[in-house]
Design a protein around this nucleic acid. Structure first.
Lengths: 127, 127, 127, 127
DNA sequence: GTGGTCTAGACCACG
DNA sequence: GTGGTCTAGACCACG
């Protein structure tokens, strides 16, 4: 499993782990039934406290994205793609609402915001 | 001055104050030279700790958006519109970058994101 | 607030806290808006680690039963009686299902189980 | 021998084995003297660790429900029906006590609990 | 003071 | 080995 931790991003470490695992499930790099590294092993790999990896796995289990069993470890649970996708779209819409609100405050029209978005998109691609 | 505090938004109270004052300056509801309520008065009005209003005013002063003078109070400082506008655009671009990143994770194209944005925009208007 | 911790019950301490707070809300000993003791204070009172009280409050917040705000503390959130009652009935029905299953294994009829329940009930009352 | 393991029930695997064997003895599907599969064979059948089946048999032996002899295997021991039945009744009474406690918290009377039990019983039967 | 995050370390039941 | 619970202790932003 490929997880990268940033100490400077401001995003809590446990959430970085949660989100990156969700992302990998969403992109089918992790499949239902796949065995995840143990919280101890992952902690060693990421050079992070066991408690932090545990917290991440707890969150994922609470959302039904993984199943953990004492003595056996943690596994990607069956078919969460729908759930994760819906959750993702929801978050996207929330971001859009914030964006539109911010744009309105700056007295930008929807077209100006769209233009800005396309300009930023082109910049990102050319990097 | 018209400030509304939300306890459920998750946004720190002092930042809610900061941002709403900035917004009002940007929208010319507050003009250069305008006298702001004292931190004590504002704390009373908003039913919030004085520490909180103090923190908000400190932040605004640090950004040069208001001037505080012992014994006289705080005032909107001269011509911050450019600064606030640039800051707003910057924040908007950051939001857009996050949006594009999230969209990419969900395997949405830039056109699909644009469509979604327009759809959300129409919903917001019709409310 | 009146919470009693048992070290011998087998029920995790944080769950004992969670359940006793839920019980008190259900029985209107705690009302919406009531200020709960801080996690540190409660930890001192119960002679338990801060992490344990924190964990209890996290669980309660996740279920929407309380609201916690940095710097301000934790409060019973508005009208959870319905939620808690429904949850309680659900748990009761699950217990009943287990009971009936167990009774069936022992080849008891529903009437025999009912009798046993009334007998136990009388014993409990006379204690 | 017919044992079904559930990964989702939360009940430890070794206890699932213990309880299902007890049940089968109670219901005379397993009789005194019957030869049980070896821990290795059972582990293979259930796709479970040998440690787990070993733990289950140890528990059963400790309770005197089976006898294990090195080189010969494990056998249902003579006349445990009384013991298992008493144990079952005991457990049933404990469940009833919990039920009554829960019901009390929800401010249900003994009659309301009895009604609910009969209702659940009818649902179960009609399935 | 208050909760949020993080760390190091321990013991337990389970597999 | 594996996750579940618990402890003592730290630093941070917020009020």
């Amino acid at each position: 499993m490929n997880i990268v931790i940033s100490n400077s991003s401001g995003e809590p470490i446990y959430l970085q782990i949660v989100n990156q695992i969700k992302r990998q499930i969403l992109q089918k790099e992790l499949l239902p039934g796949d065995h995840l590294p143990s919280i101890r092993q992952l902690a060693l790999d990421l050079r992070v406290s066991v408690i932090t990896t545990k917290r991440a796995y707890e969150q994922l289990e609470r959302e039904g994205v993984i199943d953990s069993h004492v003595g056996r470890g943690s596994f990607v649970s069956g078919n969460n793609l729908d759930y994760l996708r819906k959750q993702g779209i929801q978050q996207l819409e929330d971001q859009i609402r914030q964006l539109l609100k911010k744009g309105k405050e700056l007295e930008l029209t929807i077209d100006e915001i769209t233009d800005l978005m396309h300009r930023v998109h082109k910049e990102e691609q050319s990097e």
